[in-house]
Design a protein around this nucleic acid. Structure first.
Lengths: 351, 351
DNA sequence: CCGTCATAGTTTTACGTATAACGCGCTCGC
DNA sequence: GCGAGCGCGTTATACGTAAAACTATGACGG
């Protein structure tokens, strides 16, 4: 006999004085229920039917309950190699948009016995290029809205399923898109209907596919309706950035002054509102302003922003569903979610 | 010989056809470097000095590098029983405050080889009373800003180090507080200096210690300076909630109309601004409004909010430092961080 | 020439779980 | 009456890592 186990039926098994109140293991439950650890695993794993009698199964469950047993995740992971855990990569924790995305993903995940851990990356994804270290556990898949090239390469090298949210990245297993283009089309149609022809675009100074798409869709839709983007101004993605850029756009002396300012984001639109007020322009009587994303801020400012609401929660849910499909070997189909224009007080007829 | 290992020096060790591109283990590195797995662990663990020759150590490191070896976290956790991972419990993901708290905590954590995983709980902490399941890994400690009683009991039962942020919870190992009372004192002093005496308080309708503390501190400070809270109105913690409550407070016909409205949060203050405008009251000429927390929103509205800025990032950093102290057995000392009043456009002299 | 000690490793074990492989006592069909 | 099958378990093993215990080789002092 090469090595007798310390654990031989009933005798205390910890070397220490038990002062640390160590968590009970499957062996403890087995001892308490008078069965073997294997049986405990079978019962608690739910695959005991036909292998363990109902009476014994109930005894095991009772023992587990009274001991407050919870399986050791590390051991389970080591054994299975899978964790039923997905990483959700979000560009920053600040945004309300991703808070809703997260919530949607969590709801789908929990209903499929999956877990979600967040990887919020301050200042883009550049700073911490190792999502794995951040996750603190093995992963079964990744859902990401944007990702630095090297981080993406690491992921692909690991062979992890990857779902991209609102991105044009081709090298992934599934995509979930929001119909940004249609949102801008709705904005354009709304402004054209109000008589506007000359529109300025406050473009977020962020190198991301979604903003490129916004610019293109806006220009296209306006032209198709007889209008035009007469000026594009890049702005830092903040209220102050919007204020600066809008001030440049709306300042008198410009050759062809726009009657409407379309912003890539509500933050910029809030800044535009401030700029208009400082320049003595009334909104929406003298100039119309539109936002994007429908943040809390959109109804906090006066007038309230006409903006485009994105189905953030559904984005998260669809992302998680797609990941589940990939993990389970089903073919995920690409998703494109609709958006909705909310007409509020910041837009009106052309002066 | 009871059981010969599958792994006997050089022979392929996977049962599968290696198509899965499994991650290399410490044994693979050992084979590549011509040493044993124990040596690999020693070298990569950094405690090889005096036990392994520099030449061998370098060979091991080189092999690990070329194979792209990264230790299996689950195995390490199982072995060590510790994870160098802390759970940060935040009430919701939406708030900018906790985004900054998180960032501060992460910075301190990473510099001490610790990790942080988030536990964002939608709708208070009630919904998912099991932080452990959410963490998806074993934990070495918890930092929490608020916590449902049963979740807290679970935590304590586990014997996990617990640091509370901005709470009066006594049953924890360390606390980090923000000097909310001083913030309200500064607000009161500011308003008193502007001549205000009759002040309304828009109280957040949230059952949390921090808001109770705000109310008490405000009343106290005002009374000490010859003023008074002539009216307290509870409001849902949102712009709409602030709008409702402020409308009730500012509507004409009240016996003793306040000349200033102090709000528990910038969201409420933004609502108060809207209420004033709808009632035809100019801010700050006819009524002053103050906020709390200095959200992005505070400078997006017009006029910009006079508000109290909290050192969110330092809260997170201090929380993580306290947790490290507890984990390492050092006595953590309680922290109380200062706040700062930002005087902006929403407050002015009493009419 | 032998015991001691340092160097440079290796062998072995344990962590807690899931599961494949293996009993063992009964009951049946024939 | 006896092998086959079934119901109900148990035993043994592997996952990858860290670290305690051990081994082998040489140097050196007395």
């Amino acid at each position: 006999m090469p090595a007798q186990h310390t654990r031989d039926g009933g005798t205390p098994r910890r070397h220490q004085t038990a002062a640390r109140s160590a968590r009970p293991t499957g062996h403890d439950v087995a001892d308490a229920a008078g069965v073997s650890q294997a049986t405990v695993s079978l019962v608690l794993g739910g695959k005991w039917e036909g292998r363990v009698s109902p009476r014994t199964a109930e005894a095991v469950r009772a023992a587990a309950r009274t001991l407050g047993y919870r399986p050791n995740l590390a051991a389970r992971t080591l054994r299975l190699g899978r964790t039923r855990t997905a990483l959700l990569v979000v560009p920053a924790l600040t945004g309300e948009f991703f808070a809703a995305v997260h919530q949607g993903a969590v709801e789908v995940a929990t209903s499929h016995d999956f877990g979600i851990v967040l990887y919020p990356s301050p200042e883009g994804i550049e700073k911490t290029p190792d999502p794995f270290a951040s996750a603190r556990t093995a992963l079964d898949g990744v859902i990401a809205s944007s990702m630095a090239p090297d981080a993406l390469a690491t992921l692909r090298g690991e062979g992890l399923p990857l779902v991209m949210l609102d991105s044009d990245e081709g090298d992934c297993d599934a995509t979930v898109n929001v119909d940004i283009a249609d949102g801008m089309r709705q904005v354009a149609a709304h402004l054209l209907a109000l008589g506007h022809r000359d529109v300025a675009h406050l473009a977020a100074d962020v190198d991301s596919w979604t903003f490129t798409a916004r610019a293109e869709a806006l220009a296209h839709a306006l032209r198709a309706g007889g209008g035009a983007v007469v000026r594009t101004e890049r702005a830092a993605l903040s209220v102050a950035g919007g204020l600066d850029a809008a001030t440049r756009v709306l300042a008198p002396g410009s050759a062809r002054t726009p009657t409407a300012v379309v912003c890539d984001d509500d933050l910029l639109a809030a800044g535009a509102l401030k700029a208009a007020r400082r320049l003595g322009l009334r909104v929406p009587e003298e100039v119309s302003v539109t936002g994007f994303d429908d943040l809390t801020l959109a109804t906090a400012v006066e007038p309230e922003l006409t903006t485009v609401a994105l189905p953030a929660q559904r984005v998260g849910a669809a992302g998680m569903e797609a990941l589940l499909a990939v993990v389970e070997g089903r073919p995920p189909r690409p998703v494109r979610l609709p958006v909705r224009l909310l007409e509020r007080g910041s837009t009106g007829p052309r002066p």
